[in-house]
């Protein structure tokens, strides 16, 4: 036996021999740390819930009430996205490199797209008030609001502002408000509503990308 044999590194296991690109591994770890796989499942549940609600006529077919249940489910998809903003690592993660903002951006955009897709699939074959355009507009607007809220409350409580705005929109819906900033209650062709929702989404996404959600040493309360 020679010293060379002792110093020789052991053979790498077969699984580790397959080299995963560092970028993909980083992205995957980022997504897992935000519970994105569970969020995707939750978005699928939201799509299923929308399908059930439309199929079994939990919502009204026409009139101001017709938008209520779809709007609630769109807000639920957005709140799921907002909650994924939270990281268990908190502030320490921010010292690890320059890729974090890009990862946040890609995760939020990807989840928003997935949410629209899941809800669209849920509404397929059913009569959705306002159609896919209203659905997409509401999801991006609500998501922007949730992401913006995460800067103040942290990711885990980012759904609270969404709930408040959702309840307010129920009132605006019944009172037939026409202001652009009540975009969830406006018809699909309303340009002001689209601009408002897009602005909220852009602002929320940018702030979330650059600053990230509020972090604390513990998720107190």
């Amino acid at each position: 036996m020679t010293a060379a044999e002792v110093l020789k590194p052991p053979a790498a296991p077969a699984a580790a021999a397959r080299r995963i690109p560092a970028g993909i591994r980083l992205a995957w770890l980022h997504l897992r740390s935000r519970r994105v796989p569970a969020a995707v499942l939750a978005l699928a549940v939201c799509g299923g819930l929308l399908h059930v609600a439309l199929h079994w006529h939990w919502a009204f077919n026409s009139g101001p009430y017709a938008q209520q249940v779809p709007m609630i489910i769109e807000a639920s998809a957005a709140s799921v996205i907002a909650v994924t903003a939270h990281s268990a690592f908190g502030e320490t993660e921010r010292a690890t490199g320059r890729w974090l903002p890009y990862l946040r951006l890609l995760a939020a955009i990807g989840l928003t797209g997935l949410a629209i897709l899941a809800l669209q699939l849920g509404a397929a074959g059913e009569s959705l008030n306002g159609g896919i355009a209203v659905l997409a507009r509401n999801v991006i607007g609500f998501t922007g609001l949730g992401l913006a809220c995460s800067l103040v409350t942290g990711g885990l409580l980012a759904w609270t502002l969404l709930m408040g705005y959702l309840v307010f929109c129920q009132y605006a819906l019944l009172e037939a408000w026409t202001a652009p900033w009540t975009w969830p209650v406006r018809p699909p062709a309303d340009r002001g509503a689209w601009i408002s929702a897009s602005l909220i989404f852009t602002a929320g996404l940018l702030l979330f990308t650059i600053r990230g959600p509020r972090t604390r040493l513990s998720d107190d309360s």
């Binding site: 519970r35 569970a38 549940v45 639920s76 709140s79 990711g155």
Partner: peptide, 10 residues
């Protein structure tokens, strides 16, 4: 879990 609160509210 982190999704419980918003999903219960909804």
């Amino acid at each position: 879990g982190r999704f419980t609160a918003p999903l219960v509210a909804i």
